[in-house]
């Protein structure tokens, strides 16, 4: 790793004086996000469950987005991808993103189809 650290997060909105204080800052941010997830998970506001978007509750989308945000900060600041060359960063990040989105797309579509067969087809499985 380069000896220099980039000391700002949120696109420069928050600047830190040293790498150590940046680490604590990121920890606080991650803890807040986790706390939000847990509170939402316990109370499950009915508004977010009753509305759905692309076949999933809005609440689940919120969880997934918050997870991706957490993953971003863990990779960027704890695994210091922020300080690496952009070529390395892209190699590491885009390869899995491409493959995983493809896999998820295929599997979830197939699962939805099988679900249809189970509920409308001839298979009896609840006896």
């Amino acid at each position: 790793m380069a000896d220099e650290h980039k000391l700002e997060i949120f696109r420069g909105l928050l600047k830190f004086k040293s790498n150590v204080s940046k680490i604590w800052g990121v920890l606080i941010f991650l803890s807040i996000v986790t706390a939000i997830e847990v509170v939402l998970g316990i109370y499950k506001p009915s508004v977010l469950i009753e509305t759905s978007f692309l076949g999933m509750h809005v609440l689940n989308w919120i969880f997934i987005i918050l997870t991706l945000i957490k993953a971003y900060y863990i990779a960027w600041d704890f695994m210091h991808l922020r300080d690496e060359k952009s070529s390395l960063r892209r190699t590491i990040v885009w390869t899995p993103i491409f493959l995983v989105s493809y896999l998820i797309f295929i599997l979830l579509f197939e699962a939805d189809y099988i679900h249809e067969v189970y509920s409308n087809g001839f298979v009896k499985w609840n006896f």
């Binding site: 998820i104 979830l108 699962a111 679900h115």
Partner: peptide
Amino acid sequence: SGFLAAYGFTRFKFL
């Protein structure tokens, strides 16, 4: 990711 996608697959199947 393979494991978690398989989990998602099964879950959507028995939604």
